[in-house]
């Protein structure tokens, strides 16, 4: 999580988490409705720029974080490129059939997956989970029993990881490892991990109920999360640049500008 890499505190950190989440959801819905490659590339560039210059991490850290993206890009686009429908055949070998349409569609899908991945990472890198849940309670009226349960559960992640190590080591000491197939191995890890987690969660829940965390009366909050001018800048950034990308992609397309969906007529 955020503790893995620590970056500078930037204006992106100060944006209201609920607003950030809703904006990113909006961008997601916009992105799955983009069917033209030029606009998709422009859209990805807008997001990539924010990722590189806005998140406050060093280039080395960003590079390290982006390595899986290349993989995401290739693997998402490859099956569509190799097996997609299309008429203008470029290459054909056994079951593999690369057509111009499937090539463009594959690249389009690659850019789409890439922009989703970066959007998600921008959010994860610049948002503290605690602040997110406080903001969800205050701005979006999420019931406190859900929000506090989430926060308590997130706090348990390091304990679970530690426990996972202990279980692995204990099983190694007793000589049970590596011999069985994958499912058996997962089960052997999952049962102690889950049963311990359930016990711990139950104990925490009982003590939280005893402290009246469940009550529905009006609560006060330790952290008050509000809005600032940066929220406006954040919204404007996307409105202006994505609008610009849309105009540029329509007037100066540098790639074939056709609908990437397969239209049989």
């Amino acid at each position: 999580m955020n503790s893995l890499f620590s970056g500078k505190y930037t204006w992106l950190h100060s944006i209201n988490p609920s607003l950030k989440l809703l904006t990113i959801l909006g961008l997601f819905i916009l992105a799955i409705n983009i069917h033209y490659l030029n606009f998709m590339v422009g859209f990805s560039c807008v997001i990539l720029t924010l990722f590189i210059f806005g998140t406050g991490y060093s280039y080395k850290q960003l590079l390290l974080l982006s390595l899986p993206f290349l993989f995401v890009f290739l693997s998402t686009s490859s099956s569509m490129i190799l097996f997609g429908k299309g008429e203008t055949i470029l290459f054909k070998w056994a079951y593999i059939q690369i057509s111009e349409e499937s090539l463009i569609r594959g690249i389009h899908l690659g850019f789409r997956a890439l922009s989703f991945a970066i959007l998600g990472l921008i959010f994860a890198l610049t948002t503290k989970p605690v602040m997110l849940f406080y903001s969800l309670m205050q701005q979006l009226k999420l019931p406190p029993k859900f929000a506090y349960s989430f926060m308590a559960a997130i706090r348990l992640i390091p304990i679970m990881i530690e426990e996972y190590q202990i279980i692995i080591n204990a099983q190694r000491v007793r000589g049970i490892e590596q011999k069985n197939h994958l499912l058996k191995k997962i089960e052997r890890l999952a049962i102690p991990l889950l049963s311990q987690s359930i016990r711990r969660a139950y104990r925490i829940a009982v003590s939280m109920e005893a402290k009246r965390f469940q009550s529905n009366r009006k609560r006060t909050f330790y952290y008050e999360v509000g809005f600032s001018r940066n929220d406006l800048i954040f919204l404007c950034y996307f409105f202006v640049l994505i609008g610009l990308a849309y105009l540029l992609s329509n007037h100066y397309p540098f790639l074939p500008n056709t609908d990437v969906r397969y239209l049989s007529d």
Binding site: G120, F123, A124
Partner: peptide, 11 residues
Amino acid sequence: FLMGSEFGLEV
């Protein structure tokens, strides 16, 4: 998602 999935928001 909060752990920074490579699938991003779609998850």
